[in-house]
Simulated assay, not measured.
Amino acid sequence: MKDTRDVLLVDGYNMIGAWKELSALARTDLQDARDKLLVRLADYQGFSGTRVIVIFDAYRVPGLGKSFTESKVQVHFTKEKETADECIERLVGELSSRRRQIYVATSDMVEQHVIFGQGALRLSARELYIELEQNDKELGRKIKEDYQKKSTKNTIDSKLSPEVRSMFEKWRRD
């Protein structure tokens, strides 16, 4: 069966450069910054149901162009002499269908105009960050709510309608 979920394409280094905590981390450990970005996006994908694909620019790195899945998030390192923008444009074309919406997370203005022309919608780095923060809060609220439901006593009495409860009480007293 074909995957018809909405797709979020993320320009990975664009997000790392735009988000304060990832930008600061990247100065000392770029791999750790990438990993933290992927963890946040994996949580988002799991909670929202949107398929997430992250593209990292390997334009000046010969022989790359590999793709893999990490925490169910697809990760693409561009091919030699291919920019992340070119890869995103190619993926928008490949993934476009009437049954799904493509979102591209980038703050690159030129790229935003190109993807608009292909029918995709854009999220700036700031908008994606805000959406992830809201997602984290909603996820925390949901976990707390589920925990409270499990910790309350689960009795048959709480599942019965007032009429049935009254009928059982009458039988008990007779």
Rank of each mutant, 00 (worst) to 15 (best):
M1C: 08
K2G: 01
K2Q: 14
T4W: 10
T4G: 07
R5Y: 05
L9S: 05
L9Q: 07
D11A: 04
W19C: 06
K20C: 04
L22R: 08
S23H: 13
A26R: 11
A26G: 09
R27P: 08
L30I: 14
D32A: 15
A33N: 06
D43G: 07
Y44F: 15
Y44E: 03
S48D: 06
S48N: 06
G49Q: 04
V52K: 05
I55Y: 06
A58R: 09
R60A: 15
P62E: 09
G63F: 10
G65C: 09
F68Y: 13
T69Y: 15
T69K: 15
K72Y: 06
V73R: 03
Q74N: 13
Q74A: 13
V75Y: 06
T78V: 07
K79Q: 15
E80S: 14
E82N: 03
A84R: 00
I88E: 01
E89L: 11
L91H: 03
E94H: 07
I102G: 05
Y103K: 08
S107Y: 02
S107F: 09
D108R: 03
E111R: 07
Q112E: 07
G117S: 13
G117K: 06
Q118N: 06
G119S: 02
A120T: 05
A120E: 01
L121G: 06
R122T: 07
L123N: 01
L128H: 01
L128G: 01
E131V: 01
E133K: 15
E133R: 14
K137Q: 12
L139I: 14
G140C: 00
R141S: 12
K142T: 14
K144G: 00
K144C: 01
E145F: 12
E145Q: 12
D146K: 14
Y147N: 12
K150L: 14
K153S: 12
K153E: 12
I156F: 04
I156C: 01
I156A: 13
K159S: 04
L160Y: 08
P162V: 05
P162F: 03
P162T: 07
E163W: 10
M167V: 10
R172W: 04
